[in-house]
Write a protein that binds this DNA or RNA. Structure first.
Length: 424
RNA sequence: GGAGAGAUGGCCGAGUGGUCGAAGGCGCACGCCUGGAAAGUGUGUAAGCUCCAAAAGGGCUUCAUGGGUUCGAAUCCCAUUCUCUCCGCCA
């Protein structure tokens, strides 16, 4: 969430920039500042009240020791009265704070100055593209047919075991999953990311910390008996490593990578977009996360974009990099680049990675701060994350683009990980 | 799952009703000492909110979390969470 300081000090800028996200913030900002004013007034009154209670309470003991029973009793009564008052004040303050916080979490992050205006994906800005578009023969088929023909992914079997969107990978299909995960992790580690393997379920505090709660609750699988949420992305557990953490500025940037399965209910999804591997309830993804100094977070964003691009090049997939417009960006992001690969038989671009700078938006909720040498006040750090990469659509594209008569060719970079060169 | 013990600052650890945001130690920072370092020595060393134009300084909150008793709670009571030990079960 945005800081009150940001909102108070640059009120007009906040409103103008949120307009790029097609968000009319004017009324909400006014309400927030009003609530904050109320909060401060109440806070001061309550603090003064408590201060008086404390100072009287300190005298009571002595009064009785000195035999001033009457004064002692009067002091006791005074404290009791003050306590009654402050209880009421405390309730009001808590209510105001709740209203303030409820309003604050509804404000999206400010988009970066480079974010294009726009409402739909059509307004996104293509930054660059790479890779060679494949020339498929007339007999080329989409990946769900290939998966069946070569018996490497069984969608129906997954339906039997669990439900739709939970495929079973078999044989070389399973091996390919494992190969991709290892390949991505190795690439990330080589680029300076520390590998972590986090829990796949998180508690409500963590889900709140990265913004899944309160409003995206319906997108996560929820384990009722223990009040846990299945993670929709490794971003959630990995970023929460830093919840309530103060790091030394000299230790920045912190780079972490994690492989996890991801679980998404995808409520409301239907139709042809969900065919095959295009949209699953459980899928595998390797994530990269950075915690960075505010002055350097955009350098880190560029670094992450180049890194993901490098991996796509090694996979020999045709890709394009897109800077999302205000209307297509996520709530928490300040600047997002999407990576799409071309899936030649479907003749579709599929999103395989989304790399974002959240600036201090997540850090504010997480209370993730850094300590600057010689600086007394701790500052909010910047957080960034991205996928490198999400597997299913990469697999879809690999299968479709590399199909030849009698098999599917495995790109060179993956062959040593797979242990085979062809799926036949 | 059953029985018991516990949770204090970056870490260790003292503290059983007021003088405790909290002894002592470690760590860290700065200074002295040294040719330089180690050792020694001195000083400092939590976070959030808030008052003040700002700094200096002040107030409030925080000793797992939430509630309660009391004029006053780290300290007493209740609930919850977590950790450890033993037993049971088990990859």
């Amino acid at each position: 969430m945005l800081t009150l300081r940001q909102i108070r000090e640059s009120r007009n800028e906040v409103i103008e920039r949120l307009a790029v996200k097609n968000f009319d913030a004017e009324k909400m900002v006014a309400a927030i500042i009003d609530l904050d004013d109320q909060r401060k007034t109440m806070q001061v009154k309550l603090d003064n009240n408590l201060a008086e209670q404390n100072s009287i309470a300190k005298q009571v003991g002595n009064l009785f020791k000195e035999g001033k029973t009457e004064e002692g009793n009067a002091a006791k009564q005074r404290v009791a009265d003050l306590k009654e008052e402050s209880k009421e004040m405390g309730l009001q303050l808590a209510e105001t704070e709740k209203k303030l916080n409820d309003a604050l979490v509804l404000l999206p992050n400010l988009p970066h100055a480079s974010v294009p205006k726009g409402k739909t994906p059509a307004d996104n800005l293509e930054i660059r593209s790479g890779g060679k578009m494949p020339q498929l023969s007339a007999s080329a088929v989409p990946h769900w047919d290939l998966a069946k023909n070569y018996d490497i992914i069984d969608f129906e079997l997954g339906v039997k075991i669990t439900g739709s969107g939970f495929p079973v990978y078999k044989g070389k299909g399973a091996k390919l999953q494992r190969a991709l995960i290892n390949f991505f992790l190795d690439e990330n580690v080589a680029a300076g990311y520390g590998e972590v393997m986090p829990p796949l379920m998180v508690n409500a505090d963590s889900a709140y910390g990265t913004g899944q709660l309160p409003d995206k609750e319906g997108q996560m699988y929820y384990v009722n008996a223990d009040d846990f949420y299945m993670i929709p992305t490794a971003e959630v557990p990995v970023t929460n490593i830093f919840r309530d953490v103060i790091v030394q500025a000299s230790s920045l940037p912190i780079r972490l990578t994690a492989y996890t399965p991801c679980f998404r209910r995808e409520a409301g999804s239907y139709g042809k977009d969900v065919r095959g591997l295009n949209r699953l309830h459980q899928f595998d993804k390797v994530e990269i996360v950075q915690v960075q100094h505010p002055e350097k977070s955009y350098e880190s964003l560029d670094e992450m974009v180049k890194h993901v691009e490098g991996i796509l090049n090694k996979l020999e997939l045709p890709y394009r990099i897109i800077r999302l417009c205000g209307g297509d960006m996520s709530f928490a992001s300040a600047l997002t680049y999407d990576f799409e690969v071309y899936s030649a038989a479907q003749q579709k671009w599929l999103e395989v990675s989304s790399v974002s700078n959240f600036e201090s938006f997540q850090a504010n909720r997480l209370m993730l701060r850094y300590k600057e040498e010689g600086d007394k006040k701790n500052q909010l750090a910047h957080t960034l994350n991205g996928s490198s990469l999400a597997l299913p659509r990469i697999v879809a594209s690999l299968l479709e683009n590399n199909q030849v008569d009698g098999g599917i060719r495995i790109p060179k970079a993956l062959q040593s990980y797979c242990g085979f060169e062809m799926i036949e």
